[in-house]
């Protein structure tokens, strides 16, 4: 488990991470969402031992990270701009990492590259941006580390590759309990990958929840009541987060399980009633609007 406790990091006058406390459980895909400059990358750099926090600490499976190889051997960090040695090929990079990570699986790497249609012998500098991202993921997956940090690695990948990457992560999570930690400034990029999402804003955590929990406990209903008394009555029975009425059609987002919400609507005489699936985006909008944030401005653009 990764335990982040009261971590603060400033760059001069700029406070990039501010008293951030958060736990990341093993065996799940953790997504970190936030605008550019929210502090995601700084947090990842602290978590990977590149930066030292001004205050607080990061413990990975109980161990400190900065300058502790025993801890770092369980981490692979793919930064937003991955570095490759000048004039190197994928094979060169594979060999470099194989010399550093004891569990590095070279054979798997070669197979992966074949599957990804990447030539392992040509210079990486000839790769496209997307190919470099694929290579980074392949290099990271084969390192055999328990944690993989991907800083906006999935942003901009084409859907096929996203699916392939997702499968790779899923495979390793299942096989050896790997925990990927992904960041993005766009919620839609992580929607179909993450189990747990943390929303980072101005260096702090605005929200950190399991997506399934959020989905299970938040329901969106569209309905048309026959009379206005019933409309008022349902509001008393539900913990409504968002309410929207267009003509007579009401759209309500409320807390509670599907059963609880259905139960609440029972007994009302309605012209129309339907429960809709909430997207991750809508869940975030719902949760953050309650806290007074306009989430669209934060992560949707």
């Amino acid at each position: 488990m990764i335990s982040i406790s009261h971590v603060t990091k400033s760059f001069g006058a700029l406070k990039a991470v501010s008293d951030l406390t958060m736990d990341i459980d093993d065996g799940q895909v953790f997504g970190m969402i936030g605008t550019n400059g929210a502090g995601k990358s700084t947090l990842l750099r602290i978590m990977s031992g590149v930066l030292v926090p001004d205050e607080g600490e990061v413990l990975i499976d109980g161990g400190r990270v900065y300058d502790v190889p025993e801890t770092k051997v369980n981490i692979f960090f793919i930064p937003d701009e991955a570095y490759f040695f000048p004039n190197s090929s994928a094979q060169d990079m594979r060999d470099y990492y194989a010399g550093i990570y004891p569990k590095y699986d070279k054979e798997r790497f070669d197979k992966l590259l074949d599957n990804l249609n990447l030539d392992s012998k040509i210079k990486i500098s000839t790769y496209s941006k997307g190919m470099k991202k694929q290579l980074s993921i392949a290099l990271a997956i084969c390192a055999g580390t328990k944690y993989i940090y991907c800083d906006e690695t999935f942003d901009g990948l084409d859907p096929v590759m996203r699916q392939a990457a997702k499968s790779l992560l899923a495979h390793d999570m299942e096989e050896r309990g790997m925990t990927p930690i992904l960041t993005s400034h766009n919620l839609r990029e992580l929607e179909d990958i993450c189990d747990h999402v943390g929303l980072i804003h101005k260096g702090g955590v605005l929200l950190s929840r399991d997506i399934e929990d959020m989905k299970l406990n938040l329901q969106k209903v569209q309905c048309v009541f026959k009379n206005e008394e019933d409309e008022k009555a349902i509001k008393d029975k539900l913990d409504i987060l968002i309410e929207d009425k267009r003509g007579r059609l009401m759209t309500i987002t409320a807390r509670g399980t599907r059963e609880q919400v259905d139960e609440a609507f029972k007994g009302f005489d309605m012209v129309f009633y339907e429960t809709l699936n909430l997207s991750l985006e809508e869940i975030f909008i719902s949760e953050t609007e309650v806290a007074g944030y306009d989430i669209k401005k934060l992560i949707m653009d």
Binding site: R45, S48, G49, V50, D67, P69, E70, T71, K72, V73, I75, F76, F77, P79, E81, A82, Y83, I100, Y101
Partner: peptide
């Protein structure tokens, strides 16, 4: 001197 190189080297399991 370069952020990407710092990230590359400093994240690897080697004592500084």
């Amino acid at each position: 001197y370069k952020k990407e190189m710092i990230d590359f080297y400093e994240a690897t399991p080697e004592k500084r």
